[in-house]
Design a protein around this nucleic acid. Structure first.
Lengths: 204, 204, 204, 204
DNA sequence: GATGAATGAGTGTTCATTCAT
DNA sequence: GATGAATGAACACTCATTCAT
């Protein structure tokens, strides 16, 4: 005989005050730490609350669900990486295909610095739930926003392959803990992969 | 899967008799079906046993763990795909770079034919556990075994990027349930990606 | 309502000022609405406070307990029904047994007009707690106060049976949400029941 | 991220074996005891399991829900009372209206012997859930099955009033713990109530 | 070897109540 | 007096795993 919520009606409180925003940040940070230290399996609401130094009740004041925490975390990571990417790809000096590719590769690889396990868990969890599309939306927006001079008339499939080949390879290196992950050689190959694909498309 | 003992072997008994092998196959098939129909969340030992028409006890006679079932399933899939790949890449008629790339792409994509949800779940689960490396070993072996004539003087990093870019993109398409997954356009782009990278390496 | 301290008073403060009485009324009205709309399960202090437009804190300023709200609500309803009953049974024109019985039946059934769900919930809740006797006291007082001319030499047991048969049947109709609850047929039968009992007593 | 039951598909085990039936009986008995001792509020699945000397898991092997336990208990009680009633009302010697009414009153009053609190709780709980109709079905069936000689052409409303007036009065006496509950005087009045109603109907 | 009833630690989530502001 | 963020005990329920038969 569970609570049996009839008409949910009221949404979870949106943090408006400074104190609240702080609490939310605390919870997200705690979540990342738990994920990093114990993986997805150890990511329990009680563990998160304890680590964040708040009660479970507080946690549920700000998040509808355990899922919601993961989604928020994912969004935060995506946003951070996109910010890096934006910064990197708008630098005027990187005008060549290789130059831009290298800037992008670096931004992403650097984005993966630290909290690898947490990132992995977040990615897994978000994919495991249906929330993938929701979280990936900003990425798609970012890609679509690229000046068409550089990505001349790319199809959706091409954009997909381009982005996932890059991200997928980096993720694999992270997950498999490849020693060359942060090496120049790895960076070079990624640039070659991207630039090669670019050239192949244009050549058609 | 809570307690998770030390370092468990994957299979408890090696099935020697026909009856046993049959039971194991039954369990794996049932697992794939459950995974396909209800996803990872619905993949419970009781559900698998019921579907397989055996008791949970029997299931535990052949598998140490719930984990072990997933690992066995993953191994089976990898093996099947590698077999396809071997067949595809040794066909004498595929002599061009594009021809061989396309053969490989097709073999892998076809490997993912049917039971996408099951595959997705298996991939997720295996990644979520530490078993990734274990399962990926045959893949590495396969790559290493390629005649150096075709992959002339490729470095390890290059082989890594080559394989992971391809597998990573396909995996992303599966996990994100992209509608173009089995389209010709997607195949074309993958071929272009691989061939472009090949050309870029050789051009150096 | 877990801890449930010793023997709590029902109201914390007797509202002396207009403002306070208003707040109490607001809370009771909100409670009735919530009960009506979401049933006993949806009757949470937070929901009530929100609906009433006050904070939970304020709510606890006027009521010791969640229980106390329900009791106050029940008392209010009982009082209202008794007022109706008093009015109905003192009308001089209803001189026959049937006439008086019908007047009483109508007063009670009308008392249950509207907010059936709320009433049902209140009855349930009050019964579920030990507060039944407390709430029923005014009813007993009312019955005892009837002029002995009309209820000539009725024993206590007879008064009990008379009142409970009537109230119990009506309550059952409410709780079971019988469609004929407000029909003339139902009223007729209740009158018959009461009048029949009356006659049977007198006949002895 | 709760279990999220996708497709319930499999029903709870129906006890087929002797051992199982015993366990079910154990659980029901424990439930009645808990209800009697601690009321509806103390009726938790863990408490029941502990009292029954089984684990919660076992409990859930036989009952879908906490609700289901209550429903089963209610059905058991109803069935027992009906059995008594059937026995009482088919005795050939009770041919008069008063005779049959008295037999019925006695059967029901005796049915309320012992475990009053448990009964009360069960009734409340079942009514609070939507299960009332389900549980009451056998009662309706019983009433409908009465020979029309005795209940000549009673309408549904009349049957409702007849049964609820009787049951409601008895229940009120139980809930209010009236000292005269098992007295002859009370029985006499109930008989009078029923017989009077009967006569009033027939007289029309 | 096979069975499946039993286990029980562990999980997500709720909500009455408090108290610093 | 009023507020509402925070609390945390408590609950229903699941499911991997065991072991007596």
């Amino acid at each position: 005989m569970p609570p049996r919520r009839q008409v949910p009606e009221t949404k979870r409180r949106v943090p408006r005050q400074a104190r609240s925003a702080e609490t939310v940040a605390l919870i997200l940070e705690a979540s990342a730490q738990i994920l990093e230290a114990r993986g997805l399996a150890g990511f329990t609401t009680n563990a998160v609350a304890e680590r964040a130094g708040v009660s479970v009740g507080t946690l549920y004041q700000y998040f509808d669900d355990k899922r919601a925490i993961l989604v928020a975390l994912a969004r935060q990571e995506v946003e951070a990486t996109l910010t890096e990417l934006r910064k990197a790809t708008t630098a005027p000096e990187e005008a060549t295909v290789e130059g831009r590719a290298r800037a992008a590769v670096r931004a992403i690889v650097n984005g993966f610095r630290g909290r690898l396990r947490a990132r992995k868990a977040v990615v897994q969890a978000v994919l495991a739930q249906g929330s993938g599309v929701e979280v990936m939306a900003p990425v798609a927006a970012f890609i679509a926003a690229q000046p068409r001079l550089l990505l001349p008339a790319f199809t959706d499939v091409q954009l997909f392959v381009l982005s996932r080949a890059l991200l997928g390879t980096i993720r694999a290196a992270v997950l498999e803990e490849q020693p060359f992950f942060r090496s120049r050689a790895f960076e070079d190959e990624l640039v070659r992969l991207i630039a090669g694909y670019f050239r192949a498309i244009i050549a058609t």
